[in-house]
């Protein structure tokens, strides 16, 4: 497999606490890789290290063959790879409308003119079924609508890599499915590489090409979702069974528990 995103020996400590203890991960271009694991195990920390929001204590991250500098804010622009990040709590600006939130990265960091921005954002809002709420502020939107605005903002720049930090937290099952569907559709349309943190097992496996299981600071399983059940690692099996995931529950196997 050709790695578009290659992580080697990534370590991150918070004081004496070792959160990431030598992460090795290879993510193929235009694939969806889902990171699963217990809460507080370091999944979001891993995403933030990749996004350069946190500085790793050791290890390397390569994007399209070029190392990301961990000490420079403009690390991603150095590699020429466009990045986007969808935050767990959306991180929308309260003083901006839904339209302005989605348009923000284009207005502030692209060369598009006003008309082009308007067209592109209108299209995105229509696709996300948010056209009627374009002028509403985040405080006036429901949880699901906020998620869609955040998704729109993450995808509006047509990034090459998108990091999704629990994009379906707090959504009802129907909305969860629709967010996953949107990610899958957009991935097909724009061909970005997605790295996703999710607790929605097994639903998230529907759109995942690869699954990485993070435990005790390391990636202890990396492979196709359908290989999860046959894997003999007991800790992983235990984790999956607590997440109500078993051979019969896998949507990939076409059945529910």
């Amino acid at each position: 497999m050709d790695s578009f995103l290659k992580i080697r020996g990534l370590k991150k400590y918070f004081g004496d606490k070792r959160v990431l203890d030598g992460i090795d991960l290879d993510v193929a271009a235009a694939s969806v890789t889902t990171i699963i694991g217990k809460s507080g195990i370091g999944k979001s920390v891993l995403l933030k290290c990749i996004a350069n929001l946190l500085e790793a204590d050791a290890g390397t991250i390569e994007l399209d063959g070029q190392a990301i500098s961990q000490s420079r804010r403009s690390a991603h622009s150095d590699t020429g790879v466009s990045f986007s990040y969808m935050f767990q709590n959306n991180a929308l600006f309260d003083s901006l409308t839904a339209f302005e939130n989605v348009a923000l990265p284009l207005r502030e960091a692209s060369k598009l003119n006003k008309v082009e921005i308007q067209e592109r954002v209108d299209k995105m809002l229509a696709y996300l079924e948010l056209s009627d709420s374009a002028d509403r502020y985040p405080g006036e939107l429901s949880g699901g609508m906020k998620k869609r605005v955040a998704l729109g903002r993450a995808l509006i720049t047509k990034p090459q890599v998108v990091l999704f930090d629990e994009p379906t937290t707090g959504l009802d099952p129907e909305r969860k499915f629709s967010v996953f569907e949107m990610i899958a559709n957009y991935r097909e349309r724009f061909g970005f590489t997605a790295l996703l943190v999710s607790h929605d097992i097994p639903e998230v496996f529907e759109i995942s090409d690869r699954v990485a299981w993070l435990d005790e600071g390391r990636i202890k399983f990396f492979g196709k979702p359908e290989d999860l059940n046959t894997d003999a690692q007991s800790a992983l099996s235990g984790f999956l069974s607590k997440a109500n995931y078993g051979p019969k529950s896998s949507p990939l196997n076409g059945g529910n528990k």
Binding site: L53, S77, Y85, P105
Partner: peptide, 18 residues
């Protein structure tokens, strides 16, 4: 706390200047 400043950084917008 709401990660809005981090969000600006990921959008290549200088949070300090903005």
């Amino acid at each position: 706390n709401d990660e809005q400043i981090d969000a600006l950084q990921t959008m290549s917008i200088d949070p300090l200047g903005f």
